[in-house]
Amino acid sequence: MCMALCSGSAAAETLPQPEGQVLLTITGAIESTNHDGSAEFDLAMLRQIGVTAFETATIWNDGRQRFEGVTLAALLAELGVRDGTLNAQAVNNYSIEIPVDEAVPGGPLIAWSRNGKSMSLRDKGPLWLVYPYDTDPAYQSEVTFARSVWQLNRIDVQRP
């Protein structure tokens, strides 16, 4: 039994420590952690998971925008999250619940770059959860727009 518990603890400590500024902290029902039961990510760690980009129009900007970041699906896979609900929170304490099943390939992106430039806090950054709004009419809804959290800094994973 001790062996199973010990190996379970070791498996939970699989993420490296951030070396740069922590941009995103994920808490709750996650399998991989690096800080007191949570997962802290700097930009380099997010990039290491995988970089994806897409272009889309938004209701907040003029014209099509090019976003670069990590897909929500890839980030959750890195943490061993397969079901439940995400409580996404912004620097200004805005929060909204997002079903985990919305994190699909070709779906939402946690963007750190817009049109080739890092996003400042004043420009909806440093992280913005964006959807490829142009690819699916379902993404062009008030619900999706409300889930498009800018200044994203925390996600709490809640399992059913």
Rank of each mutant, 00 (worst) to 15 (best):
N87K: 10
N87Y: 02
N87T: 07
N87V: 10
N87M: 10
A88E: 00
A88S: 09
A88Y: 00
Q89K: 10
V91G: 01
N92F: 05
N92V: 07
N92H: 09
N92G: 12
N92S: 11
N93S: 12
N93Y: 00
N93V: 04
I96A: 13
I96N: 13
I96S: 12
E97V: 10
I98L: 01
I98P: 00
I98E: 05
I98D: 05
P99K: 04
P99M: 11
V100I: 11
V100L: 13
D101T: 02
D101G: 11
D101Y: 00
D101F: 02
E102I: 09
E102K: 15
A103H: 06
A103F: 06
V104A: 13
V104S: 10
V104Q: 14
P105W: 06
P105A: 15
P105M: 09
G106R: 01
G106F: 06
G106I: 01
G106Q: 05
G107Y: 01
G107Q: 08
P108S: 10
L109W: 12
L109I: 07
L109N: 02
L109A: 01
L109E: 01
W112N: 04
W112F: 03
W112M: 04
S113I: 08
S113G: 13
S113E: 15
S113P: 13
R114H: 05
R114L: 07
R114A: 01
N115S: 03
N115F: 05
N115W: 03
N115A: 04
G116D: 14
G116T: 15
K117A: 15
K117C: 12
K117P: 12
K117D: 15
K117R: 14
K117T: 14
S118M: 08
S118R: 11
M119Q: 05
S120D: 12
S120V: 05
L121Y: 05
L121Q: 06
L121R: 14
R122L: 04
R122A: 11
D123Y: 08
D123A: 14
D123Q: 12
D123R: 09
K124L: 06
K124M: 09
K124R: 15
K124G: 00
K124E: 00
G125E: 11
G125L: 06
G125K: 00
G125F: 01
P126H: 09
P126M: 03
L127P: 15
L127N: 13
L127V: 15
W128S: 06
W128G: 08
W128A: 04
L129R: 14
V130S: 04
V130C: 08
V130T: 10
Y131T: 06
P132Q: 04
P132F: 08
Y133W: 09
D134N: 07
D134G: 03
D134T: 07
T135D: 15
T135W: 00
D136P: 14
D136Y: 04
D136E: 13
P137Y: 00
P137S: 13
A138M: 09
Y139R: 02
Y139M: 09
Q140I: 02
Q140K: 08
Q140Y: 08
Q140F: 03
S141N: 12
E142F: 15
V143N: 01
